[in-house]
């Protein structure tokens, strides 16, 4: 009896130690994950000299950033390109997802597979035919080309996600609407869309982060004067030698919208990622 109690006390002690060890480990990992953000924030508020000395703070880095990069205009470009692309993705993926899940026709399975298999195509593989094609129809001189490319790249996964979601909605619900007197189109608008708001939120968040953070399309499909903030920052980094603080300031300002969206919609993002996609 005493022995058991003794070992009980020991194991309680061990357990406490283990929890503390675990906690410490998690703090260490958190520091590793957060350090880059701290570094970026810390050095965004320095001048070149302060950066070299790693001492003192100022707003000189920000002044340099705004002098070298049309930050406000590029933030606006990012916003517009994101909004337009996401709008197209949502329209085509909800309609197609609903059709593939609830309005199946002969060959719809094949069409679904065709759309989803476009996921496997990396943009790099087709980038030059794409640029030439869109250039031929004069779409690379405005937002339109990039928006279309983003929409096409986002559609396969969004369609997959929406179709999966709509499959989870009971057929009886759709049939009830049909008997209640709605056509399929109105059933889609009145029943399917309101019910799929969580999935729509997931697609929106996922695509927002993806498009906002993208460099490849922004760099090659947008005219120089309509670049997004991410593309602007990348060109600033590789362009004429600039000091580090403005680059950190630019990193900070370009990352903030995506971080805010992430913090607010974390739940939706997690759901979308686990449905099968990397970044």
């Amino acid at each position: 009896m005493a022995a058991i109690r003794q070992s009980g006390r020991n194991s309680r002690l061990n357990k406490k130690m283990a929890i503390w060890a675990l906690f410490t480990l998690m703090v260490i990992i958190a520091v590793v994950m957060l350090y880059p953000f701290w570094y970026i924030i810390d050095n965004a508020f320095r001048s070149a000299g302060q950066f070299d000395r790693q001492a003192g703070h100022s707003l000189i880095g920000w002044k340099e950033l705004f002098a070298n990069l049309p930050v406000a205009a590029q933030l606006l470009n990012s916003t517009l390109v994101c909004a337009a692309s996401i709008a197209i993705i949502l329209i085509v993926s909800t309609t197609a997802g609903f059709a593939f899940a609830k309005l199946r026709y002969r060959g719809s399975g094949m069409v679904f597979l065709l759309v989803v298999s476009a996921l496997m195509v990396p943009l790099q593989s087709i980038i030059f035919p794409e640029i030439v094609n869109l250039g031929n129809v004069h779409l690379t001189s405005s937002y339109a080309g990039a928006v279309l490319v983003y929409a096409a790249l986002g559609t396969p996964f969004a369609t997959f996600l929406m179709a999966t979601y709509y499959r989870g909605i009971s057929d009886e619900l759709i049939e009830a609407a049909v008997i209640d007197g709605l056509g399929y189109e109105r059933t889609f608008l009145q029943i399917a869309i309101p019910l799929s708001l969580p999935a729509i939120a997931t697609v929106t968040v996922l695509q927002f982060i993806q498009i906002w953070d993208d460099l490849l399309v922004a760099l090659f499909f947008l005219p120089t004067n309509q670049r997004t903030i991410t593309a602007g920052l990348a060109t600033l980094a590789t362009g004429r030698t600039t000091s580090i603080p403005p680059l950190m300031a630019g990193s900070l300002i370009s990352a903030i919208p995506a971080i805010v969206v992430y913090l607010i919609f974390q739940r939706h993002l997690v759901k979308g990622l686990t449905l099968g996609m990397g970044k």
């Binding site: 009886e172 619900l173 049939e175 009830a176 008997i179 007197g181 709605l182 029943i191």
Partner: peptide, 15 residues
Amino acid sequence: RHRDIAMVFQSYALY
């Protein structure tokens, strides 16, 4: 919708 019938489903199919 033009048959003028109402249906009660097993799952109730409430919106």
